[in-house]
Design a protein around this nucleic acid. Structure first.
Length: 697
DNA sequence: ATCCGTCAGAGGTAT
DNA sequence: ACCTCTGACGGATCT
């Protein structure tokens, strides 16, 4: 502003001219003067993004997963394996005090406290599902008018998909999360737990609805929107939180969180409108009430731009900019535009969500919550069409965790315009994987993990014969979801275990992928985890847990990450190694799930492992050997069997538990040992989670 | 593989 | 009832 060339002031006056109504009085009065400028004392121009610093084990704290309810079976996962490297040095660094805020652990710099505008509190919010007298939903929909008998075809959408009892499915999903403290959620505002649960439930439901749709004939003209459907269902059941609009921080949602659908943001109260980019609310000012903006979504629909990652020039709404077919008109100072103008003068915080293209799924978008901004100025531009378009310049508040800037950095690392700091090796796999895996240390002098051979698969000393005579499929063009006669689909219980874009629908006791005895091509939808890494990973030195694994790319819930590679050993060998404490890097699929918080033995089912698979990755292995343990993991493992008529081709495969923002450490739960081995040495856990048990095996 | 055009759609707001 | 920076599809266009 001051340091601008002044042109903006000219523009600003035009705003007043444009102002068509009384809405905006000739104000500029009590602008809660933000210092005429430059950021107060923006501590240090975050030059050196403390590598691991900003991304401590700050995530998670909730989440369970346990019985990913499967259409037929439920089972419980039970991660385990072993971390390796360097006996962790106990440094607490991030341990949030005993503050009740479950989970806000890591992030050194938290969001500024709740805005002073926030009024009332949330009571209600997370509402019980089968609550007889649940009121929250009564007020909302319910009366969804039947819309005039739509062009005939419409309603069979519901009928068609109701051959599956969706309602029961949802209840089962919710139940599987074992929300023992459900009642406390009912009273609470959103918090990390409830937000986490809701998001996991939402995406699981969405994937299941997708799966159902995938297996049906696609009826031309009917658009399938599992995202909307899942959202509506949860809305109606009251499985949502932060229902009341608020300015500023949304409890339970962290800066940097990513979303794959607008509906997800509605459910957790981050941004209510399902399409509109500007969310606003009435704010009481003395007697009157005026609209103020609370959040915006910038996703490329308008001519926004931002030269600096902390600055956003946002376009107002309206004017038929994105409504082709209608004549483009001048935007009016009403609705969201008016709210933004009011917020400019009021100086309230506005949440900013940035939409970015999803590289892994080009038809989709990812929304990055970039934290709080303030509107600094507004003016009117002539759009390309020559009509008036409102512009709002927003500047990010300092002291918040990095979010969008991380995406920018990654982009630069990829295109080579900026070098990744602390790189030891650009590809520690030496070409063994189809995409490189960086080795990075920006915290100390260590030059790398101890020697090992990078090997992306499993090494058997002797083949394990298959006792079932399996025959592969004959799906020439690849297995189709709707093909119930495909033997591979039958083995999976009648459905393809993955959605059309390759995301695992839910955990299962055992997944059957197509293998060498199938004739389907490598791009078959049932060959997800056998074509190598898809995600750009890096092995990095953590602050206090030795080496760890994280991703440059965002990872969506259910996405394949990698398998656990190494040498297959037998139980006797494993025991021997344990005796001499040389069992780091051992993955033992016979371990049971972690019990207690987060994990639940929802049913008697457990993972079905055809034979006791134990993998030693000490001498040879892949990136999975670097994944650390966490009591609140964001990754889980799952046995996967590939169809192979001669041998038993079993693999341990890792998938994302939930959406994982870029540069967040990937962790899974190593699980617990069977009772007869309970005396095994424990290791001190440094996961930093609010639910940390303090140790792991 | 990208791009455009189509279109049903949801919740929230305003009427 | 009206509004809207969705998102899946189908078809055209393009290295």
């Amino acid at each position: 502003m001051e340091d601008d060339d002044g042109q903006d002031y000219v523009d600003k006056s035009r705003v007043l001219n444009v102002r068509p109504l009384r809405c905006l009085a000739p104000i500029f009065p009590s602008t809660p003067s933000f210092p005429s400028f430059p950021h107060p004392q923006a501590s240090s121009p975050f030059m050196c993004p403390p590598p691991a610093g900003h991304f401590p084990p700050g995530f998670a704290s909730f989440y369970p997963f346990s019985g990913y309810p499967d259409s037929q079976n439920m089972q419980t996962p039970m991660p385990f394996g072993f971390n390796g490297s360097i006996p962790a040095v106990p440094i607490n660094s991030f341990r949030s005090g005993a503050n009740g805020d479950a989970g806000s652990s890591g992030r050194s710099s938290r969001n500024p406290g709740p805005s002073q505008y926030e009024e009332g509190d949330g009571y209600s919010d997370w509402v019980h599902v089968n609550d007889g007298e649940d009121s929250s939903k009564a007020a909302t929909k319910k009366k969804r008018t039947p819309k005039r008998a739509r062009a005939g075809s419409g309603q069979d959408i519901n009928v068609a998909s109701s051959d599956v009892d969706v309602d029961a499915m949802v209840d089962k999903i919710v139940e599987s999360f074992n929300l023992m403290d459900f009642d406390t959620f009912k009273r609470a505002d959103g918090d990390k737990d409830s937000v986490g649960y809701i998001r996991m439930i939402y995406d699981l439901l969405r994937r299941k609805l997708s799966q159902i749709e995938d297996s049906k004939e696609s009826t031309p003209g009917v658009t399938r929107r599992p995202d909307l459907r899942a959202g509506t269902i949860l809305m109606n059941k009251g499985i949502r939180t932060n229902v009341k609009k608020r300015i500023g921080v949304v409890p339970g949602v962290e800066v940097g969180d990513i979303f794959f659908f607008r509906m997800e943001m509605c459910l957790v109260g981050l941004h209510a409108p399902i399409m509109a980019g500007i969310d606003y609310m009435g704010l009481k000012v003395s007697q009157d009430e005026e609209p103020v903006a609370v959040s915006i979504v910038s996703s490329g629909g308008y001519e926004d731009n931002s030269e600096d990652a902390d600055v956003l020039v946002y376009s107002g709404q309206g004017g038929n900019i994105n409504n082709r077919g209608m004549e483009i008109t001048d935007q009016k100072l009403e609705r969201g535009n008016l709210a933004l103008e009011k917020s400019l003068h009021r100086g309230n915080e506005v949440r900013v969500i940035r939409g970015v293209k999803d590289i892994a799924n080009p038809t989709g978008k990812i929304y990055v919550y970039d934290g709080l901004y303030k509107i600094r100025e507004s003016w009117v531009d002539k759009g390309k069409s020559g009509c008036n378009v409102f512009k709002y310049k927003l500047v990010r508040l300092s002291g918040q965790p990095e979010a969008y800037t991380v995406w920018k950095s990654v982009q630069q690392w990829k295109d080579g315009s900026t070098a990744r700091v602390g790189v030891i090796s650009h590809d520690l796999t030496s070409g063994a994987e189809s995409i490189p895996v960086s080795l990075v240390n920006d915290v100390d002098d260590e030059k790398g993990p101890s020697n090992f051979t990078y090997y992306p698969g499993l090494k058997y000393s002797k083949p394990v014969n298959s006792n079932e005579s399996s025959t592969g499929c004959g799906c020439q063009g690849g297995c189709l979801a709707g093909n119930s006669s495909c033997p591979c689909i039958q083995r999976n219980g009648g459905n393809l275990p993955y959605t059309a874009n390759g995301v695992l629908v839910s955990q299962k006791p055992l997944i059957h992928e197509c293998g060498s005895s199938c004739i389907c091509p490598p791009n078959c939808k049932n060959r997800v985890c056998q074509s190598g890494l898809k995600i750009r990973l890096e092995v990095f030195k953590t602050k206090d847990k030795g080496w760890g694994l994280r991703s440059w790319d965002p990872i969506r819930s259910g996405a394949f990450i990698c398998e656990y590679a190494g040498e297959v050993i037998d139980i006797t060998s494993a025991e021997e190694l344990r005796c001499v404490n040389d069992d780091d890097y051992i993955f033992d699929a016979t371990r049971t799930n972690q019990s207690g918080e987060g994990f639940l033995n929802a049913s008697n089912e457990t993972l079905k492992i055809p034979f006791p698979l134990i993998i030693n990755a000490k001498h040879a292995g892949n990136v999975a050997r670097f994944m650390n343990h966490s009591c609140s993991p964001n990754v889980f493992w799952q046995p996967v069997l590939r169809e192979n008529s001669k041998e038993c081709d079993l693999h341990i495969v890792f998938y994302a538990y939930r959406h994982i923002p870029p540069m967040t450490e990937l962790t899974y739960s190593y699980g617990i040992v069977p009772p007869d081995r309970a005396d095994q040495r424990r290791k001190k856990c440094l996961c930093g989670s609010a639910k940390c048990l303090g140790y792991f095996y």
